[in-house]
Design a protein around this nucleic acid. Structure first.
Length: 512
RNA sequence: GCCGCCAUAGCUCAGCUGGUUAGAGCGCUAGAUUGUGGAUCUAGAGGUCCCCCGUUCGAUCCGGGGUGGCGGUACCA
């Protein structure tokens, strides 16, 4: 190849943060999603699907400037100069859908949907620019019963996927509680919105940074190990203590055992909630109601637990927030333990639909991070994703391609008509290459017919080769003669009429 | 965005204090085998040593810049 030709070639490369999915990944994902779907439908949610693309303004406050689309969102202009964007979650499109079809939908409207979402941000370990979410939402129900149901359903999903009780927890908190605390320490009002956000972010890091780290972030700021400085919220020591008392105690008792209780009414040494702030009280009573409902349904605090430190980054949450967390650790390839952490989250967003309709429409929902959950299921060797690998088709070897392709085609058709996945080898390779091909396809069985079988005195024969048995026997071979002999034992020559029956024998032998 | 580490065959990695033909294992292709994948042996193919600029008689190696990957951190609707 000349240099000119080479430089003219297009480099086959994927943009960063994107990945290809192969047969095993797809099969595992689909097996997993089937389980989730079954749980959602058991709870009475119905499917709905919206497109990948929405008008940018429908997705939220992230309106692009005149020429520069908003960072983090893939955006482009339509023919008519309107901005379009790829969705970055499934909640905003649902809000648009509900608002647009409001009169037609039964209320409360309970729906689920799965799909790809896109974020144009720096990819990291397990973070991609295209990933899949699986959401369920109840729109039009303000009762904490709707929130409680979402939490129970999340727990059911994880268990349906083979995650053992105790290996996960659904944590529940309420934005109103946090807002109440912030109000109490003088951070209420529009002018403090920015600082409130900083405080919430700090609280969100409690599990990773610990109390001391969060205290630093609530105060002047924190310098991390890499030397990067994060500006803090600038609270006084007293204010920081109040915030930490509110949130940290529950977490500490979680670590020690069952706990995380919140107390309604009087301030206690545990909660230290300042009285007289209606928002916080309301939040706590909602949490208490959620807790009561899930407990009577048999969900103990080993599955669903109030945790005052759960924040969730999304600003549109207005009440209860949920986080599904995997609590187990598993050794990674380098031996270091891996924690998967959050595999899903959600909450109440009473204001999202209101953006379109003016009136408030209460809504609550939950979103499962499909890819991350899949990685976790693989780590614990869940049969749901492991068994999803399908065996390859029966491969009919094509030996005398000049004169007998029709014979082979007939054999393949016979198998297919019997409902057996089968294919005729269509390449140029010899017999060696063809069996190798069958091996790489993960086939359980190969069918061979050459002149010996075709012209057998007793009538047409076929060789049925058991590829799995052959592989097992080969492991036991001591020398070449032995190897050749064992090889013969993995196959049988049968009349052509028995093709389907004998192939089925082999397949049945090796299928679970 | 910020800090750090890394980049040599399809994969995992050696190597060269700067010097003719850059290696291994695995994988791949083929032969040993009228017509048999996976064992074993043999052979073969496969590389702009990430890119650009500089230093040098000479750079895969040294310096600068870039790109990409990894780890941490920040952001994450």
């Amino acid at each position: 190849m000349t240099k000119e030709q080479k430089t003219a070639l297009v480099t086959p490369e994927l943009p960063r943060g994107l990945i290809d999915r192969q047969a095993a990944d797809i099969a595992a994902t689909e097996a997993m999603m089937a389980k989730i779907r079954a749980v959602y439908e058991l709870y009475g949610f119905e499917a709905v699907e919206t497109p990948f693309i929405e008008y940018t303004e429908a997705l939220g406050k992230f309106l692009p400037d005149q020429d520069r689309p908003n960072e983090g969102v893939f955006s482009f202009k339509d023919d008519d100069e309107r901005w379009l964007s790829l969705r970055y979650d499934l909640t905003a499109p649902l809000a648009r859908y509900v608002a647009e079809n409001y009169e037609r939908l039964p209320k409360p409207y309970r729906s689920y949907r799965a799909g790809w979402v896109f974020r144009n941000e720096k990819p990291g370990p397990g973070r991609y620019r295209q990933f899949m979410q699986f959401d369920a939402d109840t729109v039009g129900a303000s009762s904490p019963a709707a929130d409680a149901e979402i939490c129970m359903m999340a727990a059911d999903c994880l268990e349906a996927l083979g995650i053992k009780r105790g290996d996960y927890v659904i944590k529940v908190n309420n934005r109103k509680v946090l807002d109440g605390v912030l109000e109490a320490i003088g951070l209420g009002g529009e002018e403090n919105a920015g600082r409130r956000l900083v405080v919430l972010r700090a609280i969100d890091k409690l599990d990773r940074l610990g109390v001391a780290g969060v205290r630093a972030l609530l105060g002047p700021g924190r310098k991390d190990d890499s030397g990067d400085f994060t500006k803090g919220a600038g609270l006084s020591s007293d204010q920081a203590t109040q915030v930490l008392n509110r949130i940290a105690f529950g977490v500490r008792s979680d670590v020690g055992g069952r706990g995380g209780t919140m107390v309604i009414g009087n301030a206690t040494s545990q909660g230290d909630l300042p009285l007289g702030h209606d928002l916080g009280i309301q939040g706590i009573s909602e949490l208490a109601e959620i807790e009561r409902l899930v407990r009577v349904s048999g969900y103990g605090d080993d599955r669903i637990r109030i945790d005052p430190s759960v924040v969730r980054g999304l600003e549109y949450y207005t009440g209860p927030v949920f986080e599904a967390e995997l609590t187990f650790e598993t050794p990674g390839e380098d031996g270091k333990p891996i924690r998967f952490g959050s595999v899903g989250g959600g909450g109440r967003y009473d204001g999202l639909v209101a953006r379109f309709r003016g009136e408030k429409v209460p809504a609550t929902g939950f979103s499962i991070g499909v890819s991350r959950l899949l990685a976790a299921l693989r780590a614990i060797k869940s049969p749901i994703v492991g068994a999803a690998l399908k065996a390859g088709p029966v491969v009919v070897v094509a030996l005398d391609r000049k004169d007998h392709m029709a014979d082979y085609q007939r054999l393949v058709s016979e198998l297919r008509n019997a409902g057996i996945a089968a294919e005729l080898y269509l390449g140029e390779g010899g017999m060696n290459a063809q069996l190798k091909y069958a091996d790489r396809r993960g086939s359980l069985c190969a069918v061979i017919q050459g002149s010996n079988e075709r012209d057998a005195p007793s009538g047409r024969q076929v060789v049925i080769r058991d590829l799995v048995l052959g592989a097992e026997l080969a492991k036991a071979s001591k020398d070449r003669a032995d190897y050749l002999e064992l090889r013969q034992r993995a196959q049988q020559t049968v009349p052509e009429a028995e093709l389907v029956a004998r192939v089925r024998d082999v397949l049945d032998r090796h299928r679970g």
